[in-house]
Design a protein around this nucleic acid. Sequence first.
DNA 1: TCTAGTTTTGACCATCTGGTTAAACCATAT
DNA 2: ATATGGTTTAACCAGATGGTCAAAACTAGA
Lengths: 208, 208
Amino acid sequence: MSKIKKDNTEEKILEAAKTVFIKKGMDGARMQEIANEAGINKALLHYYFRSKQKLFEAIFTNLFKQIFPNIIKLMTSEEPIEKKLKEFIENYIDILTNNPRLPAFILREINRGVDFFGQIFRSQSINPNIIFAMFENEMEKGNIVRMNPRDIMLNILSMCLFPFAAKPLMQLMLFENDSEAYTQFMEERKASVTKFVLNAILLKDKHL
Amino acid sequence: MSKIKKDNTEEKILEAAKTVFIKKGMDGARMQEIANEAGINKALLHYYFRSKQKLFEAIFTNLFKQIFPNIIKLMTSEEPIEKKLKEFIENYIDILTNNPRLPAFILREINRGVDFFGQIFRSQSINPNIIFAMFENEMEKGNIVRMNPRDIMLNILSMCLFPFAAKPLMQLMLFENDSEAYTQFMEERKASVTKFVLNAILLKDKHL
DNA sequence: TCTAGTTTTGACCATCTGGTTAAACCATAT
DNA sequence: ATATGGTTTAACCAGATGGTCAAAACTAGA
């Protein structure tokens, strides 16, 4: 048994499937295209993963974990709220810069109406309540403005994720389709969004 | 020639196609499904619109206009910046509440890599520069914080659009999949986002 | 009523697509 | 060398899908 060979093709398949699925989505992707991308015979896809569905689940599950990675970890450190948010936003935008197509892919698939993604999410056992409690604690201490912690969380996620999900549109709208300008813009956004959020919620001196 | 009949079926088709395309996207939608939804024969779809592509373009073009409707109009009134932003956010979230699936649909299709959407956008002749100039003018007057006006615009759009685009995920994450709670939350967000944005950019007294 | 034009339909077609199968291939152990 | 067992391939299949077509059904004017 040649384990080296097996591991190699399996990885090639996963890599190819990831590329194709992210670009085309479950519906748009073709098994033949994945096979070509991996440089192998189409039947091999079914040999390693029984069906398109199973292959997709393997990819999606893995990618989904990457986009909601250590949110909890980042949000529950012992740092002051300013630093906590700053590091979260910077880290998150960095992750997304390295995986720019992930947000659009995830959004596309969670909107397909198949309940499969719900299972993934539940199995992740992400508990947002810990984060909400953290925000509420800061409100008690008078550090930040009183508001629904869900809004804070959602606002931050929106400002980080949406610009990637809507890249084709925003790049056209804001930078006449100049891809490099948009990348540069996202880099600067790490500081910009941080400032924006802190300005919005900090109670003490306005952080400028 | 029975104009009444014709207009009727054509409208039925457009309505059905809109429903199906929004739910399934171009790739996922089936002509048969659209025909069923419209309660007509599949061949009629091709009689009125030559191909799936043509039918899709008719729908997409129309929907696309709805989501970037009167942005300019709303943003260039003579009202003070506070009121301008308040009304924009409230109007925009209202529009989206009435068309909750639109953001996900648009995002899905603009990420399909087909350049067709670029043409639509250009034909819309939306000029963001007018909005940027407006923000820059407010900065000159010392009304708002100095920052890239693109960031302001993108932040607002993000906070309005993303919660709808990511509804299946956020509803699960924030409200244990309680749909009504999420709707209620979006209603309250009109005020919350407005406050958030004004807090973030206004220079004078912190608007609470 | 008859006729000409339009709308609607069922049957059909070529192609694509996910999936299967049987045979070939190949490294290893005996 | 040859038997063994995992790996890879070409050929194939059934069902789905976008699209076509000729005929039927309908409408309105002569």
